[in-house]
């Protein structure tokens, strides 16, 4: 691993001070960054540890909003009573991710910035990867693409965004408060990650000196009737083959509004508005749910080894809708 300097910030101003002086990368839980440093993929010369900053590890439950501090751990958020009750999709997206150990370490903001599991990206320089080495090509395009994107890919990159939490957040129209040297701004989580396009090494719209401070999730009528349905290669401790985050507002069995986001199949958290629209005003039964699943995957562009995810994803969306509907206070 390349040597780096390590600084510990105790305030947000402290982070910016270190960053402006050194260009330091922010270190929080470290479960992604340190892992990729061990692989030689991330090679920062300076790190600034932000985990000693007070006040960023709280969850606040307001009437219409849940606010998560950036440094809340995944396990704390997953176990929080308000989260479990008001937005199970969020709790499930966290508790079905990684392992208890990693969830105790990883922070909510850091988790949003998790990087792809594409094996060509994670392995050594013998494999072309535009994300790891811009301009080197993409080995996955004609390679083993079982784990690669059906949505949002480009000729430069089809690496899947691997996270779960961001997918659930995208479904609920969550936003993030971001602080940088130019002050504070608010972004929609759904717009936080970029499509790979010709620049797959640029993964988010964050500036290098920006840090996520809060994650805000509107929870009003939507939230309670929600679920995160994750299909994996093993029962636990695995990334999603396909996942569906759904939230419903039902009125006497009729869908007033539906939110559906897909994980494991796209280059970023993937909302499917067409499928949401297809459900609006419909009576939610198995047939309608399956139809929504089909609409969700209508624009999928599978590769050589991931075509099964169209059928699997269709079923996962349908199952998720039925599970969420069961949780509706007014079925």
């Amino acid at each position: 691993m390349r040597p780096f300097t390590y600084a510990r910030a105790t305030s947000i101003d402290g982070i910016h001070a270190v960053q402006s002086a050194t260009g330091a990368r922010i270190l929080a839980g470290g479960t992604t960054l340190y892992d990729l440093m061990k692989l030689g993929i991330e090679t920062p010369g300076h790190l600034v540890d932000v985990t000693s900053i007070a006040g960023l590890d709280e969850i606040r439950s307001h009437q219409d909003e849940l606010i998560f501090g950036a440094l809340v751990t995944m396990s704390d958020a997953a176990a929080h009573p308000a989260v479990l009750q008001r937005a199970p999709v969020l709790a499930e997206s966290l508790s079905k991710a990684a392992s208890p150990q990693l969830r105790n370490m990883a922070t909510l903001a850091g988790n949003l910035l998790q990087r792809t599991r594409c094996a060509y990206f994670r392995n050594g320089p013998e494999y072309p990867c535009n994300k790891r080495m811009p301009g080197s090509g993409c080995a996955a395009l004609d390679g083993l693409d079982r784990g690669h994107a059906l949505f949002g890919g480009s000729r430069s990159c089809i690496a899947v965004y691997p996270g779960d939490w961001a997918v659930a957040l995208a479904a609920l129209d969550a936003t993030v408060d971001v602080h940088g040297s130019r002050g504070m701004r608010t972004l929609e989580v759904a717009n936080l990650h970029r499509l790979p396009g010709d620049t797959p090494h640029l993964e988010t719209v964050l500036e290098p000196d920006e840090m996520i401070l809060n994650i805000r999730v509107p929870v009003g009528r939507l939230g309670q009737a929600s679920t995160y349905h994750k299909i994996r290669d093993r029962e636990s401790y695995a990334f999603a083959l396909v996942s569906a985050a759904v939230a419903l507002e039902l009125d006497d069995g009729m869908v007033r509004q539906a939110r559906i986001a897909l994980g494991g199949v796209a280059t970023r958290p993937w909302r499917v508005p067409a499928a949401e629209a297809a459900l609006a005003g419909q009576r939610l039964d198995r047939a309608a749910a399956l139809e929504a699943g089909r609409v969700a995957f209508a624009d999928a562009r599978p590769g050589q080894h991931n075509g099964f995810k169209v059928a699997l994803g269709t079923a996962a969306v349908a199952d998720a809708l039925m599970i969420a509907a069961e949780r509706s206070p007014s079925r």
């Binding site: 599991r117 094996a119 060509y120 392995n123 013998e126 494999y127 080995a139 004609d142 390679g143 083993l144 079982r146 290669d233 093993r234 029962e235 636990s236 401790y237 695995a238 990334f239």
Partner: peptide
């Protein structure tokens, strides 16, 4: 669960860790 992911253009095993070479976990 278990299989080696080998891209014939490159040789070698791509899923060369415990995250991607999926051996059974307790929940399995």
């Amino acid at each position: 669960r278990e299989t080696a992911e080998i891209d014939p253009r490159f040789g070698g095993v791509l899923n060369n860790d415990f995250a991607e070479y999926v051996v059974p976990v307790n929940a399995d």
